[in-house]
Structures are given as C-alpha cells and as structure tokens.
Design a binder for these strands. Sequence first.
DNA 1: CAGGGTCTAT
DNA 2: ATAGACC
Length: 763
Amino acid sequence: MISTLCRLLKLPQSACQAMEYSNDDDEPQFGMDEDEDDTEWRYSSFDVAEDIRPAEVFLSSSCSSEVASGSVFHGKGPHRRQNNNRVILHFDLDCFYAQVEMIRNPELRDKPLGVQQKYLVVTCNYVARKHGVNKLMSVIDAKEKCPQLILVSGEDLTHYREISYKVTELLEEYSPLVERLGFDENFVDATELVEKRLRHVASSDVSVNGHIYNNQSIDPRVEEHIRLAVGSQIAAELRTALYKKLGLTGCAGIATNKTLSKLVSGIFKPNQQTTLLPESTALLLSCLEHLKKVPGVGYRTAQKLQSLGLSRIQDLQVFPLATLEKVLGAAAAQRIHSLSHGVDEAPVTPSGPPQSLSDEDSFRNISTETEVVQKIEELLTNLLDRMQKDGRQPRTVRLTIRRFSATNKWFNRESRQCPIPNHIGQRITTGNPDVMAPLVDILMKLFRKMIDLKAPFHLTLLNVCLSNLQPASTSTRSSIGFFLKHPSQSSFKLNSSICSQGESGTSTHAKNQVLSRHKHFDIAAGDLKETNIMTASGESEADSKNLPDKQQIKSGSSSPGTDLYLPPGIDPEVFRQLPEDIQREITSTISTTLSSGAYKQNKMTLQKTASKGDISHFLRQNPQCESLISSTAKAESSHSLSVECRQDAQIQPNNIDYSSTQVAGSSGGHTEPHSSSSMDADPVDLQTINRADQVPSHVDPKVFSELPAELQQELLNEWKQQETVSKIHVNKHIGKARTAKETKQTSAKSTQSNSLFKYFKPT
DNA sequence: CAGGGTCTAT
DNA sequence: ATAGACC
C-alpha cells in the first residue's frame, strides 16, 4: 500500500518506507543564525577575479586559484561563518577491503569474495552479497550461506591503508579541504569549487548528476539548488577520477553539511550518488528508523537516549535540550539536538597525516609474561617500521590490553601510557634497531601497572600505540604546513631540496609532485562500515502487540535496597549511570506511564500560548507532540496505515525559502494551527489513549512517549526554572554549539599544519 | 565483534 | 594520563 502510494507520488521506495514517520513541519531552519555581530561572510576576501576552472584544469593549474580556494577558512578574526551555503561531498567506497583485494587479484572479480579477520567476514564484494553474505558475519555463517565463498585474510592492513591514502590524496588534488572518516570515507568541502565554476557557467543549464533524494526536482531560481547541482557534477567527476586512476568505485552524497551528506550518500548503493536538496531534509531524517543511525550517535549515547524514552529522531527533536544536557553533557547534547534537525555546522577539517600510529592483535588467550613480550615485540616490529617511514618522532607510547571476561563486556580495555625518552625517540626515527629492547622494557613496565604478573591473567588483546608525533625536521618553521598548502600566501621559501620552488610561483602541480614523491602514507587505519540508512522494515506498524512486561532490576545506589521497575528495554546499567536526579525524574514517572503512539507523527502546528506548568504547555512548545493527543482523539483503535500515508502525502515538498528567516515552531503556513483548547489534555486522557495505542512489534518499545506525560511535566517544571533566560526555540542553540567547534578547529588546524612536516624528510 | 584511528571529558 | 565514545 505504501509502495503504491509512493509510485503515485513518484517517491523513491526509500522515501515511502519512511513516510509513516515523516513530519513536514519539522523543517530545519536553515536561514537562521541569530548571532548578533554577524559579520557578513564572504567566501573569499581576496577573490582572484581570475579564471574559473573545471576540476581537471584546476588540478594542474597555477597556485593562485588554489590560494583562493584554500584560504577561505583561514581568515583571521572572529568571524561568524554563515555556513548554510556550503556544498559538502561525502565519499564512501564500496566494500573497500574487498575492492582492494579484487584489484590485487582480478580473478576474484566475479567470484563471491569475503575479507576475513579472525573469525569474521568483515566485508565482502557484491557477488557474495547476492548469496546472502554480509559484513561482520561470522565465517561459519557466511560459509553456510555461500559455500563457494572465497576468503582472503584482511588482518594485514598495509594495502588498505595505502590505497586509502591514495584516495584521500586524489581528492586533495581538487580541494584542500578533505577529511577522512575511517578508512573508506572522505568528506570534501566543495563550496569553493562550486563558486568558481558558477562564475563562468550559466546557472540556467545546470543539472544534477545522479539521483536526487526524494525525486525532488531542482528549481533553477533557487541558488542553493544550483550550488548543490554543481556539487553533484563535481562529485561525479571525482568519482570518475577515483575509478580511472585507482580503479575504485564508491558512492557520494551531496548536501549542505557533513552529516546530511553522509546520510544521503548511502541512499543508492553501490557506485551511485545522491543529492539532497534542503526541502527534503526532514524526510531524510525521518527515514532513520533509529537514533543510532545518526552519525555521531553510537551505542552508548543511544542507550542513554533510550533511558529517556528516545528512540527516533522525532523524539529527539522535541525533547527539552536542558534535560538532554544533563544526561549527555552540554556539548554532546547540543550537537545531537542540532543534528536531529539536520543542522550541522561542523567544518570539514583536513585530516592531514595521522596523529598516532598503532598496531594491535586480538587472540584467544595470552596468560604468560613470555607471550606478552613476544606479542609486544611483534607489534613493535611492525610499528617501528611504519614509524620510520613516517619520519616523525613519537613522544608518547601507550599499551592497551583487554582482559578476558565471560560477561559480555566489550568495553573493558585498559591502557597506560608514558613519555618516550628523547634519545630513544630519535633512534626510532632513524631506524636504529637498538630501540626495540628499551621500548619493550617501557611497555612491560606499563604492562605491570595493569597486570600483576604473580597472579593469573587472561588477555585477549594487546595494542601498542605511538603518539604525540613530532615533526622530524629541525630547521623548519612551524607554519610551514600552511605555506605548503598555500604556496602563494607568502614569500616564504622552502629551503628543502625537495621543494625548491618556493615563492608564489609554486604550482599545484609541483606540490603534488612533492607529495607523491614523499608520501609514506602508510599510516593509520579506519573502520569499514557502510551506512545503512534505509533499513526499511517493510513491516507496517499496523500490527499491534502487547506491551512488554516491565523489567525488574535491582536498583543501583540511587535507591538503595529498592527494586526499581524500568520500562521494558531500558538498560538498567545505563540507567544507573545517569545522574541520580535524572534517575529520580524518570522513576517518578514510569509507574504511571504506560505506552503511547507518539511514534505517529502528524504535521499540525500548534500555536504557542503562554500557559505553563502542565502538559499542554509542553505540547505547545513542542508541536510534534500534538500527535499524542490528536491521534487518540481520532481513533482509539489507532494507526491505520492508510491514514498516515494520506497525511504524509499532503505534505509534498514545497519550495521553502530557507534563506529567509523562519521562526521555530511556526513553520509552514500550510497547516492549520490548532486552537490551544483543542490541544489541552490532562494526564488522564493521555493515559487512556496511550493504553489503546499498541506498539508495533518492529517499533522499539522505548519510544519517547513511553515515559512522557509525567516525565515531561516534571521536566517542564524544572526546565522553566532554569530556562528563564534561554529560550525554548530550537534554533537558539545552534549558534552556541559552534563555539567549541571553532576552538577545536583552530587548534586542529595548527596541529595539522605542524605535522605536515612529515612531507619533508630531514635533509 | 575485527582491525585502526580521532576526539572529549575527567 | 586514562577512560570513553565514535567511526
């Protein structure tokens, strides 16, 4: 039924699958930056009026254009960037390890191939996937699904690392703003490239290359559309380059920020690209059937959110930030709260060379000192080799262990670190073999800090990490990295024999030669993961189910001696980790709360009124919650799919001008505001309604509405007290959230500039 | 969970 | 310096 509707609406299947949750009133407020003192932001204060080049030309062009592109984010002074106009690309290689193996041995091309680490198939090619093999599947299962599966060992990451850096390097040839994310993903800030291209291309004949999310059509009059369209063409060119030069295929996502670009890149796989136009942001977000799918929200955070009853994006969007901050800390809370609205100001921070080199191995059991020493030597041998090729000098060494534990605890790693004496560090860089013994010595001291050798022990992992990497050179200035990347920015001359061109005459091409001659890019590693955004349970939520039994746990310290009843699915451990006052807030509500159908969203906008202290007040502040009431008012038997689809169908993307200021909570004039009286409902009503609403089996029982009524009431009270000054409007938080990032960005940048020393071998 | 990494909060 | 959390 849904898919039929989708066809009628010409929506992609993926969009249809999310329609049950879609909530169009919740458009992110892109145009809003309420920061005062907002200096007008220009893309380039020293815009070279010169030529505009297609990427290919740009690649080998003179430095002047590169300066323009690279210096944008280096402007000094406390500017406020207005980041809504960025064009961010996300690249995600298809089953990277498997691709590398297929390149190394082309005969594997058309056979089902899996890459094995220990007892896991960490990734596999698409032939294997057709046979039901998936990433992170155990070898046993994989062989079962596909007996002909060919397995190659992927425990030595050398080749992957190499190719991975080649990918990043290739992208860096087009834009200096390339950030790695793990081994197989890269972000590129293409804003400058787009700007350049637009200067000599008629925006009228710009079209999108590849898919457009939600099949939305571009409006040539909307500048944002044009820029994203150009971004999509650049993305296509980069993907072509990746294939032609490295033989690699992958996906790309084009959007206005990193998170969205990453989310959208996974929509069409493999080897395709998708552009997200701003109007479809809300749909994309509502397609995520769980918060865990939000980049930046991992296992732990998701668990904590669950304890608050939050499991879907919409839950997060309407949840009081103040409470979130108590549970996650202010920074993380603001960050994911913004993310839930599709707002992400995080800059693309050039990764540069890695900050640390490490090597590790896991095993069934190591329980003697001799074995430990051997393993450490083994790891060190590999590490020292890589370290030497890198050329920098490590100042810190760390040993990490994982003790065996029957109780499924993955998180039990411990580590000890200490400085590396200078004389030893220097010998590492020069490849002096004498360093092994003293380093092992240091590492064993660290080991003894964690493990009592007299007592039995059982380890399952050892990791050695060299960090605090110092530039190898003795004579260069710390700012060399900056000048290396922006040769014409100064008259600084590189006196290295490698880079004698110096001055403003240094060409991009020359720089690339330098880089490739000295790329010992065999550092670091990353993860292999594929974002699976549209897991799309084809199930309907129509099949209701009984409420799970309440879960009994032993209370932690917060309520000594008392058994607590938590709503089903809430991890008692996570619960205990919450601050006591938060625990109390939750427990004080759950006894009276059952479940509700808050996962059913509708798009009605509520008028804000000034009443306070009760649920209706909260609802007014948080329009999305209105579904709690309206859905119940409609039918106690609840959710018929058809009803929901029709509701969503009405909300066709409309051309919203995001550059104009919008007020939170009152978006979209196309909905009928409810009178405040219709909104009002007392807790009793809610409970009645909630009980009637059965949670579908595939919906996580810990939905927002599981605790809500009273919890929200309590939160509200507290909230009112603490938030007399700060406003409830979502968008107010966004500006604040950025401060920390900018700080981070600045420091990260200088660090990276410094570490670019690695490109210059000491002469 | 298998490697490797990066960044943050104490 | 160490533990967490995330990819």
